[in-house]
């Protein structure tokens, strides 16, 4: 059995509308081994965020995008992507145009 990967602390950047969920902070950090783990840590440590990122069925809201660095999470082969030092997770609203 392989040893468990070590947690990596990553930065999470938040849009202004959601900053009330993090005590007004535009940036927080979470420790996890994978992208999925980082998202779960984010909503566990800041539970007010959960309902704004995920719908009642637990699915990522249609107009919310989570980026791992410059990759949209919808493009990732797996949310189990291991994290590496320096990774940045960004929450943005996926609405463009008028």
């Amino acid at each position: 059995m392989e040893p468990a990967a070590e947690s990596v602390v990553v930065r999470v950047l938040l849009p202004s509308l959601l900053r009330a969920c993090t005590g007004g902070r535009a940036e927080v950090s979470v420790a996890a081994t994978t992208f999925a783990g980082a998202v779960e840590r984010l909503v566990s440590e800041h539970p007010a965020l959960r309902g704004h990122l995920f719908d009642d069925a637990g699915k990522l809201r249609e107009h919310v995008s989570l980026f791992l660095n410059d990759e949209d999470s919808r493009w990732l082969d797996s949310w189990q992507r291991p994290l590496v030092k320096g990774d940045v997770l960004t929450v943005i609203q996926a609405v463009s145009g008028g």
């Binding site: 509308l17 959601l18 309902g51 704004h52 990122l53 809201r61 107009h63 996926a94």
Partner: peptide
């Protein structure tokens, strides 16, 4: 919000500060 969905906000200090319902 069209993007972030709904919630209930609560203020017990006459609207000075608000907090999101723990489980809306």
């Amino acid at each position: 919000s069209y993007v972030y969905g709904p919630t209930i906000q609560i203020s017990r200090d006459r609207g000075k500060t608000w907090s999101q319902a723990e489980q809306g």
